[in-house]
């Protein structure tokens, strides 16, 4: 049975509890303290050490009419794709699909090659720099005696890829992932993906009936590009690109046959040309 997230952005109040609960449970450092001026978003994006990220989109009408103004908030997370680019790309097998159907990075296996980073069509995975050596991270509230690769979710020496584990370790205890548990308004719902999908579809019907016709699901059904469905899918109030989500994501490995074929054609061509050149008198 696959488990996943249904993130219903119509219920999100942008409180960022998911971000903090995630960091606390997964013993992740903060990514540094800089003010962006981009609405209330100062964590900017998902990173190797930020596994939930709340996007803020201000849609303010030019005229102070008070009707059309919207401030969209959405908690982004790893999509745990049915066909996952990162998982396919990982050369060490550090990235696996676990018994909950989640895409999981084994931090003790990962060697930090960074190939998963460029293989994610959603820009989710990233490398964690060495925690000790840079001023980037603040580990002030991590238990010092647990700063040891064998105990924590990410190897604390860094140098590996990081992303949402769908709280694999919590799921082994039958617990709900930290973000979904914290979320005060149930914007993040966790459960059996099939059940969540049904619930999401009903929700869209309800919203459409209320006149919120721009409400749409993202990833509940096959999203195309060879990726299939997403175990962490979303209900959005606007087009995906508004939330910085790709409208047309593509599974990178689908491009391989073409690539190898093109290379083979050129190789054979050059070999023939070479044969002609070298073996002529």
């Amino acid at each position: 049975m696959a488990t996943g997230f249904f993130t219903d952005t119509t219920l999100c109040i942008g409180c960022k509890a998911c971000e903090v609960a995630c960091k606390q449970w997964n013993e992740l450092p903060s990514d540094g303290f800089s003010f962006t001026g981009d609405s209330y978003d100062n964590t900017v994006e998902l990173s190797g050490t930020t596994w939930r990220h709340v996007a803020f989109v201000e849609q303010i009408a030019a005229t102070p009419d008070g009707v059309e103004d919207r401030w969209l908030m959405s908690s982004d997370v790893c999509k745990h794709c049915e066909n996952a680019g990162c998982l396919e790309a990982c050369p060490t097998g550090a990235i696996i699909r676990n018994e909950f159907g989640s895409v999981y990075i084994q931090p003790d296996v990962c060697n930090g090659c960074g190939y998963c980073v460029v293989s994610c069509p959603f820009g989710v995975v990233d490398l964690i720099d060495s925690l000790g050596g840079t001023a980037k991270y603040s580990t002030a509230n991590l238990q010092e005696s647990r700063l040891d690769a064998s105990k924590t979710a990410l190897a604390h020496t860094g140098g590996v890829a990081g992303k949402c584990t769908l709280c694999y370790d919590r799921q082994t205890l039958g617990m709900v992932p930290a973000c979904a548990k914290a979320c005060p308004t149930d914007s993040i719902q966790f459960g059996d993906v099939a059940t969540l999908r049904e619930r999401a579809k009903e929700r869209v019907t309800t919203l459409h009936a209320r006149g919120e016709t721009s409400a749409q699901l993202y990833g509940a059904d096959d999203i195309g590009g060879g990726i299939g469905t997403l175990n962490a899918f979303f209900l959005l109030k606007d087009r995906p690109s508004v939330y910085n989500l790709p409208e047309r994501p593509v599974l990178p490995s689908t491009r391989q046959p073409d690539g190898y074929a093109a290379a083979a054609v050129i190789a054979v061509g050059l070999a023939i040309a070479g044969w002609a050149i070298f073996r002529s008198a």
Partner: peptide
């Protein structure tokens, strides 16, 4: 020689992905 191109083109980086045939071919040549 060819794989060094496929390595790039089989990713999500738009430039590389757009060169899914060209980059492996250019790499090998």
């Amino acid at each position: 020689a060819g794989y060094t191109g496929v390595l790039l083109s089989a990713t999500a980086v738009p430039l590389w992905a757009a060169g899914k045939r060209h980059i492996p071919a250019a790499s090998i040549s």
